[in-house]
Amino acid sequence: MEIGGVNRNDRFTRGSRLVDVLSKAGLAFAIVAVMLYGSLVSPAFFTSGNLLNVLTSMSIVGIVVVGMTFVLVVGGLADLSVPATIACGAILSLGLQPMIGPLPAFLLAVGLAGLIGLLNGGLVGYVGINPIIATLGVGTIGLGIVQAAVGGVIVYGSNPASAEFAKGRLFGIPVVVLIFLVIALVGHFVLSRSFWGRWTLATGGNYSAAEASAVPVRAVKAGAFVITALASGISGGLLGLTLQSARPLIGGGYEFSAITAVVVGGVSIVGGFGSVPRAIAGLIFVQLLTNVMVLDGVRTPIQGFLLGILIVGAVGMDAALRKRGVA
């Protein structure tokens, strides 16, 4: 009885070991390699100032990455409304400060960003619109509203205390980094230990089987977009507070940085497989690589070129490994 099972299993474990080596240890090796290369080519790389800088800018994207992981794992492809939700978070948390105070402004900004996510989730999960189209559309609408609300100008912060807090440190670690770590831990817990995370993985792994197993698949799918929007709102709010100014296009490019990190981290683009630590490992790698390239004086177009190759390579590897694992 065992023969068929074992040989299939053998094929699989080979594939799975490869997946493990390539996306866990492989990424760790790559990170170490980039750090070694960085310290060789630039004396500025291995300084606490530079690394803290990398860490801080990484944290802002990292918060979005945590949300985006849910979107990819649930089989929701990608959330392209991130720039709009970041702008919403940044502009509102600064713009509402004079009226209601810094903390309520921040919370309200995040809440409204969540509303954008709810709209995304409704369209994707319940109406069944392609996520790329839905989030692109909702993002464009959201950005339009935000721009109209502030009249297309730059909004400045008016509460120095909140700026101090956002730029400050706790036990020598930047506050932004701490917030990112907390969100990453919560995200990791939810995805790997909670029923919601199991539902997310099941929905991404086989939508109809999950549905037939009494998983509320529509809500789970919608939820991933709400999580991403809330994360982006927080990220935008922190970005606004750190910069003390926000313009409508403040969030441009964050969606691609986040997707790149998640994909390079080995999270499957078709869903059903992935974790927050993997995505963050991808993020660390991409951020360090970018930093080293900047320090090394690599020209911007070349940087983009290399990152593009990285994405295509990661997605290609995902497809190849998936074939091997399932066949």
């Binding site: 029923f195 993985l201 099941a202 792994g205 086989n206 089987a209 999950a210 549905e211 059903g272």
Partner: peptide
């Protein structure tokens, strides 16, 4: 198509409908 989530373990598949109770 509708019965199993192939990427999940036997355990994860079995507990799926009653996850809330666990």
């Amino acid at each position: 198509g509708d019965g199993v989530v192939p990427g999940m373990s036997v355990r994860e598949n079995i507990s799926l409908p009653i996850l809330r109770r666990l």
